[in-house]
Design a protein around this nucleic acid. Structure first.
Lengths: 143, 143
DNA sequence: CTGTTTGCAAATGATTTGCATCCTA
DNA sequence: TAGGATGCAAATCATTTGCAAACAG
């Protein structure tokens, strides 16, 4: 799943929603699909190096990307981070409160439990997030 | 575990941290320990009906309550909610994006998975949150 | 007494919104 | 060409911070 494929999926999403495929949206989406990490709206704006693109548009486009299911948003203390989801294995996060590192982990059994809970409650899931806050191994060793 | 017991635990926490036990802190904590739901800082300020207590102090005290482990903070879209944790079973949340309802669920097996992950990574956990966003059964039935 | 804590008001900072202009479809 | 999309600037809004006065130990 490369950037090109992801962009196509995004375009299909826009069309399915009767939304315009604009140059601005494509530039923003391409930058997101190139990413390998967790970033906030301002990070993305900086990476684009296109001062003409307004931060407001970044927010609006990130919202579209999340709705499309290609990108995921996670709520941290006082800010939201985004990450590309398409073409990546399902995972959750460990966040170090010391160094800010975000570690990812995969745990199918945990995901199974979540699926069971959603089923148990007859809840229509749109998204979910599992975040463990604490101190990473590296920071534990620091003096 | 009633309000009085919880307050005592909070006082012990304050003493252990060499922090002052003040009337303002006790009033805020008592209101929190009376709560049965999820509330934000402003909700709490309103419930106190003590205009003299500054919102800033509410935030500062909620922070202490979270550090003490008696209260838990959850990050939602653009705001934080708090809930009393002491004297209640461990649980996670389902949040309805339509009506805003917050459903709680208990799932020991899910908690076990989290414990295993934390162990696997040798991560020192401080807190965690599992939030499933979606549409609750009641809202699914609405036209 | 003496350092904390608090109230108040101002500052912050991420995100949202109004609106005229621009650009897809 | 029409209505959605964008840039820009202003508005929001929860939360934080600086500081002098009030208070706990």
């Amino acid at each position: 799943m490369d950037v090109k494929d992801s962009l196509e999926l995004f375009q299909k999403y826009l069309q399915s929603q009767k939304q315009h495929i604009t140059q601005t949206r494509l530039k923003i989406a391409a930058e997101v699909f190139k990413s390998q990490d967790h970033f906030d709206a301002h990070d993305l704006w900086r990476r684009l190096e296109e001062p003409r693109i307004a931060p407001a548009t970044i927010y609006r486009t990130l919202d579209l990307l999340c709705r499309s299911g290609l990108v995921r948003r996670m709520e941290l203390e006082n800010r939201a981070l985004y990450e590309r989801v398409i073409g990546r294995p399902r995972h959750e996060h460990l966040v170090c409160v010391h160094c800010g590192a975000i570690l990812e982990f995969e745990d199918p059994l945990l995901e199974d439990r979540l699926a069971e809970v959603v089923e148990r409650f007859q809840f229509h899931r749109i998204s979910h997030q599992v975040i463990v806050s604490g101190i990473c191994p590296a920071c534990q060793k620091k003096p």
